[in-house]
């Protein structure tokens, strides 16, 4: 327990409309599997994955949020601590794409100014049901200066790449990234076994 198994800790957040595949993307990334039968997320979910980047062990703490409007008061409180935000829409659902600007406004309102962002157009395995052309995704991303990828949690397309690029972007601007991290929120009581008050 006392031995730290990683060098840096990054907190990521997944947001986007209900049903776009946030939970599936996270499951693909953390467990390398796809499951069609996820129940909708209520409130907030949490997963950890340790990756290697630039010779460093990086622990990704990923928060998966509920998409429905009702949960926004609960979920927006997580924006503040996030270092990277993954904004997801569904290429087979035009509405989820239109809502991207609403989610971007949410980020502006609630997240740290320097938070790293990334837009994912998920379910790109369903070409025959596509409603959102790829270039519309590209252009909204360019407009806001945010990286963009089309992904598929089902067919495992670009999922690792998306998460790794987001982590890389955070790493790039992490101060003192060659030594012990500073300004990085490492959870304080990582040790302290059974310490009582």
């Amino acid at each position: 327990m006392a031995k730290k198994t990683y060098d840096l800790l990054f907190k990521l957040l997944l947001i986007g409309d209900s049903g776009v595949g946030k939970t599936c993307l996270l499951f693909r990334f953390s467990d390398d599997a796809f499951n069609t039968t996820f129940i909708s997320t209520i409130g907030i979910d949490f997963k950890i994955k340790t990756v290697e980047l630039g010779g460093k062990k990086i622990k990704l703490q990923i928060w998966d949020t509920a998409g429905q409007e009702r949960f926004h008061t609960i979920t927006t409180s997580y924006y503040r601590g996030a270092m990277g935000i993954m904004l997801v829409y569904d290429i087979t659902n035009g509405k989820s794409f239109e809502n991207i600007s609403k989610w971007l406004r949410n980020i502006d309102e609630h997240a740290n100014e320097d938070v790293e962002k990334m837009i994912l157009g998920n379910k790109c395995d369903m070409e025959d049901k596509r409603q959102v052309p790829k270039d519309r995704g590209t252009s909204i991303a360019q407009e806001h200066g945010i990286p963009f990828l089309e992904t598929s949690a089902k067919a495992n397309i670009n999922v690792d790449k998306g998460f790794m690029e987001l982590a890389q972007a955070i790493l790039n601007k992490t101060p003192g990234r060659d030594t012990e991290p500073k300004g990085v929120d490492i959870h304080k009581q990582e040790t302290g076994k059974g310490k009582c008050c």
Binding site: M1, D45, F46, I48, K59, Q61, H187, Q189, E190, T191, K193, G194, K195, C196
Partner: peptide, 17 residues
């Protein structure tokens, strides 16, 4: 409680979720 007292944050999150 015993697990919560000795776990780190991520393990506790996993446990409670």
């Amino acid at each position: 409680r015993n697990e919560i007292l000795s776990n780190d944050f991520p393990s506790n999150m996993k446990l409670l979720q």
